[in-house]
Every structure is written in structure tokens, then in C-alpha cells.
């Protein structure tokens, strides 16, 4: 399952179910949630924008690499688009592997690589304004 969807449509248990496999003894899951602060400033919400077809293609490449490199059976990645309020889920990654170590490592590789290669942009909203993340040096 590789999807971009509105926050309200993200169902974590469906994503976990989507990677379960009789052949695997481990499912590792990473859930990225919206934190209420950034260097002492109060965050009110995040807004995510994506270049959707390319984001899906880059997410699929990550999933393929996790399957190949960490011998994962199934990999699901679901990322939110649009508004995400404090405490809500921004991204979910689930990886099933025969043994536990590879599932942790594959999941970590997936979230780290997502941040570097997937065309999704985050705007942070504060009580006194907003900005696109990482825009300035």
C-alpha cells in the first residue's frame, strides 16, 4: 500500500494489516505525528503539499529497496496531504520481515530516505505566522 491521502482517511490498523504475512515473524511500524512545538514556538498545524505522481513513484522505489535490501515481504507507506493538526498522523510506514532486526532497519531506512527524495513539502503554522520548512539556508 503506497498512498497519499487526507489525514482523516489514514487508518493505522488497515496499514498494519496490509503488511502482515504468514512468512514473516516481525512487523515494524513508524508513525510520524504532529508535534506541538518547534524550538520553543507553539505549532498549531502542518500543511502538506505533494507532487503526487512523482511522490508515489519515489515512495514505491523506497518500498522496492526495503524489500530487496532488508528482505522485507511487504512494505506500506502512507503520507498525509493537506492539513494535519497537533497529535494527528502525518506518515505511517509498515514493514514485515521474517526476523525483527531487518524490520527495524528497513523502517528506519524508509523514513530517512522519504525525507530526502520524496517531493512532499510541509508548511508549519504558528500562532503568529507560517513558513515552508527548510526553505532558507
Amino acid at each position: 500500500m503506497i498512498e497519499l491521502k487526507e489525514q482523516k482517511d489514514i487508518n493505522i490498523s488497515d496499514i498494519i494489516d496490509s503488511v502482515k504475512s504468514d512468512y514473516c515473524g516481525a512487523v515494524d511500524i513508524f508513525i510520524g505525528t504532529v508535534r506541538d512545538n518547534l524550538v520553543g514556538k507553539k505549532v498549531t498545524k502542518l500543511f502538506f503539499e505533494a507532487y503526487t505522481p512523482m511522490a508515489i513513484s519515489e515512495l514505491s522505489k523506497i518500498a522496492d529497496t526495503v524489500k530487496e535490501r532488508y528482505k522485507a515481504d511487504k512494505v506500506s507507506i502512507v503520507h498525509a496531504v493537506g492539513d494535519c493538526l497537533v497529535g494527528e498522523t502525518a506518515v505511517v510506514i509498515a514493514v514485515s520481515t521474517p526476523h525483527r532486526k531487518a524490520s527495524f532497519e528497513g523502517c528506519q531506512y524508509a523514513i530517512d530516505t522519504l525525507k530526502d527524495t520524496v517531493p512532499i513539502w510541509k508548511r508549519e503554522y504558528f500562532e503568529d505566522g507560517s513558513h515552508w520548512v527548510f526553505s532558507h539556508p
Binding site: 502538506f48 512523482m54 503520507h79 527524495t117 517531493p119 513539502w121 515552508w132 520548512v133
Partner: peptide, 23 residues
């Protein structure tokens, strides 16, 4: 993602990619 070497044609779909910040 472009390495800069592609020769562009009118029909190509090009996108500007500012710093990505998913996750």
C-alpha cells in the same frame, strides 16, 4: 529527479523541486 543533463523537449513535464520536507 534531474541530474541536469537531460535535453528538454516541449512535451516534457518539468517541476521545480524546492527543499523537500515530508515525514
Amino acid at each position: 529527479h534531474s541530474l541536469g543533463e537531460e535535453i528538454l523537449r516541449e512535451e516534457d513535464e518539468v517541476a521545480l523541486i524546492p527543499p523537500m520536507s515530508g515525514g
